[in-house]
Computed example of a mutant assay.
Amino acid sequence: MSGLFVENQGPNWKKILYHAKSAFAVLLSVAVLVGMGWFGYKTVRDAYLDYKSEDDYLSVQGEPVVFTVPQGASVNQIGALLVEEEIIKSEKAWKSAVAKLGAEPTFQAGRYNLNQQMPAAAAAAILSDPNEVIRVMVTIPEGLRMTDQWPLITKAIPEIKQADLEALGKDPKALGLPAWAGNKAEGFLYPETYQVDDTPTAQELLTAQVAQFTKVTTELNFEDRATSLGLTPMQALTIASIAEKEAIGTDMAMVTQVFYNRIAKNMPLQSDATVVYANNIKGRLTTTDEERAVDSPYNTYKYPGIPPGPIGNPGQEALTAALNPTQHDYLYFVVVDPSTGETEFNTTFEGHERSRAKFLAWCQANQGKC
C-alpha cells in the first residue's frame, strides 16, 4: 500500500486490559476498606449495645402489662417488683433512672399501664406521673341515703367491699367529718362524680366525699347562714336532705320555706320522705297510715319539728335552698306530676286536698310508680 496511508489495526486491547486491571484494583481496595470500616463500626456498635443492654433494655420489646405500685412501697421495693415481673432488666438500671428524675420523685400507689421488657427510664417516667394512674369514675346521685350509695360504689369499684363501707358508716370518725356532725356520716357523703385510682380503700373514697361536702358548705358559708335563720347547721342540713327528696329545681327553695312556715306555726312537717326513711321503704313515693304511725324520731307526722339528722345526702342545689328559702306564706305542697316534678302550693288544707287529688289521679294512671 502507499506510504501515505496507515492500516487500521483495531483497539489496543493490551492497553485497555491494563487500565481495567488498575481500576479493578482500586475498586477492590475501596471495597476492602469500606468492608473493614463497616466491620469495625459494627463490631464497635455491637460491643456498645451489648454494654448498654447488659443492665437495661434499649427499647420496648414486650407485651403491655398492668403493674401495681403497692401502698407504702419504697423505691427499691418498686424496682425489685419491676424486675420480678420482667418489666425492667435490673435494679441497677432502675436506680439510675430514678436518680435522673431529680430529687425525691414520688411514686403514687395504684395501677399503671407498662410493657414487659422496657427501658427503666421509660418505666420510671410513667410511674412518677400521677396522671398515669389507672382511674375509674363513680357517680353518686343526689339524695341517696348512704346505705343506697354502697351498691353503686361496689359495682363501680369491686375492690371496695360493702362490709368496709358499712363499718365506716357506723363508725365514721376517720372520715374527717365536721365537728358538728356528731360522728354521723349520713348527709355528709357528698353526691358527686369521683375520679379515683382503681384500687382505693373504702376510707379513701368516703373521706373524699366528706372533703367535698366541706368544700361546698364552706363556699356557701353554711354554718353562719344557718345560724342567721335560727337553725343549727345540722338542722339546715336535715331540711336540705328532705327538700332534696321532695322537690326539684327552683321548687326546692319553695319547699324549704313551707317547712319553715310550718315550724313557725308549730305544725308538724308531715313529710312523706321522712316516713319513707323511718320505715326504710324502697321504690315507693306514698306511705300508708300504718307507716305514718311508726314510732321514729324521723317520722314528721308523729313528731313535730326537724328530725334529728339528714335522711339522705343532699347536693349543692338543696343545700343552697335550705339557706335561701323563697319567701311566701304557703303551708302545703304536693308534687302533682312526679314525672315532671310539677308542684302545687297552698295556704289552706282544702286547697291541699284538691292538689292531692291530682297526685292520686296521676298515680292511678301510672300504676306502680307511686
Rank of each mutant, 00 (worst) to 15 (best):
G3S: 11
G3E: 12
F5R: 10
H19W: 15
V26C: 10
L33N: 06
R45Y: 15
L49M: 13
Y51A: 13
S53V: 04
G62H: 08
E85W: 01
I87E: 00
K89T: 06
K89R: 15
K95E: 12
A103K: 14
E104I: 05
Y112T: 02
L114I: 04
A123P: 00
A124Q: 01
T139H: 03
L144N: 05
Q162M: 12
G182N: 07
K215Q: 13
T217M: 01
T217Q: 01
E219C: 02
F222H: 02
E223C: 01
D224N: 14
G230S: 07
G230P: 06
T232H: 02
S241N: 07
A243Y: 09
D251S: 08
T256H: 07
Q257C: 10
F259K: 03
Y260H: 13
N261P: 09
A264P: 06
V275Q: 04
T287Q: 04
V294Q: 07
S296K: 05
P297L: 15
Y301W: 08
K302P: 05
I311M: 03
Q316R: 14
L319M: 08
V334L: 01
V334Y: 00
E344K: 12
F349C: 05
R356A: 12
R356L: 14
R356V: 10
A357V: 09
A361G: 04
N366T: 08
Q367R: 10
